[in-house]
Write a protein that binds this DNA or RNA. Structure first.
Length: 127
DNA sequence: CAATTGACTTGAT
DNA sequence: TATCAAGCCAATT
């Protein structure tokens, strides 16, 4: 059997972030039981192919850094696209290009996360 | 198997 | 608010 990869777990969890809400890279890692894997989460999202970001794809734009700012490097276009998408969901940025985490952070109940993780891990060979 | 590479985070300055 | 240095991680080379 093959364990579902970390990247797939990231994509699966991100798919559950509701519109108008966000999660930080570090928060995603934390929820996946990898407390210090923020960078790995960013790496995973950067690896997304365009084909995976469509309607039924991964809402990658709902993941920002812990400060509440768009954190895409190397591609101004992608960074702009992320902001546009977030604003389209009703999220507002202040004059410092920062969104209010206390207001937009997705804070799912523990049981909810537990359920999601079980499904993600379960859809792959359980054992 | 070791080195490299970032869409990260935190704490100090 | 802006910079820097360290620590941390999975996927790639």
């Amino acid at each position: 059997m093959s364990e579902i990869s970390f990247n797939q777990l990231v994509y699966g969890l991100v798919r559950n972030i509701p519109s108008g809400k966000v999660l930080s890279y570090g928060r995603v890692a934390y929820l996946l039981d990898v407390p210090n894997g923020a960078r790995a989460v960013g790496w995973a999202l950067s690896a997304l192919k365009d084909s995976e970001t469509g309607i039924s794809g991964v809402p990658w734009h709902r993941v920002v850094n812990a400060q509440g700012r768009v954190s895409i490097k190397g591609s101004p276009d992608a960074a702009m696209e992320q902001r546009i998408r977030l604003e389209a969901e009703g999220i507002e940025f202040d004059k410092y290009d920062t969104l209010d985490m206390t207001r937009y952070l997705w804070e799912p109940a523990l049981p909810e996360i537990e359920t999601i993780l079980v499904q993600l891990r379960g859809q792959d060979a359980p054992d």
